[in-house]
Design a protein around this nucleic acid. Structure first.
Lengths: 103, 103
DNA sequence: TTTAAATATGAATATATATTAAAATACTTA
DNA sequence: TAAGTATTTTAATATATATTCATATTTAAA
């Protein structure tokens, strides 16, 4: 019987899994990649910058999902909504993946 | 129009998203947590060590999914199958999540 | 004050993933 | 070689997530 050292609770594991799922989508990852370079970005700017052709409505769904999970935040300024990262340390995910030779 | 610095290809983003989805499940995260402490572990050992009550068959599904995505590897020794991490650097995910105050 | 632009919402559908249960396989030992 | 244990496989079903499309909302500008 193995004894855990980190001792992460079931609730915490659930939270982590939700965040990973929220990030685990090619378009959502690309959104993070864009926000790494420039922050904040409006929905329109993100839409224009995405490599993957994406419908405006789909993009909105993606952004809201990441906002709901506490990864993104937004601020409305006139017609535009400016999205930014809640915590840039989330970008370490890319380094983590790269270090594991996942890409 | 934002220009990406990391320049991750669409195929790489897809691969990363698949790995994140493979990890993004509370039980699968707990399996990683167990393997951080002791490696390799047999299916039986994992089954007995999991906090979350899990069916043996369900555990097998989880293990195979992570193996398929290149996160785990296994070796059969007699009756038992020994699972271990392909790259322990994947465990940095936990640090990444903790640093972002996700738990 | 109507129109246009930017974004969000909601509902319907499609697709993917998780779960369960039963059976199959593989190896070990009696 | 029969029986038992460990694990995988398969198929059925349940649930969750993604996608699409049409419409709503908000704000700004003509």
């Amino acid at each position: 019987m193995v004894h855990l050292t980190r001792n992460i609770t079931a609730a915490q594991l659930l939270k982590v899994s939700e965040v990973l799922k929220a990030i685990g989508h090619p378009v959502r990852l690309e959104i993070l990649e864009l926000l790494e370079v420039k922050e904040p970005l409006t929905v329109t700017e993100i839409l224009e910058s995405l490599q993957t052709p994406t419908e405006q409505s789909m993009l909105s769904h993606h952004l809201i999902k990441m906002k709901d999970k506490g990864i993104l935040k937004c601020e409305k300024k006139g017609l535009h909504v400016h999205y930014s990262l809640v915590d840039r340390k989330i970008l370490k995910i890319f380094d983590c993946m790269e270090n594991c030779s996942i890409f």
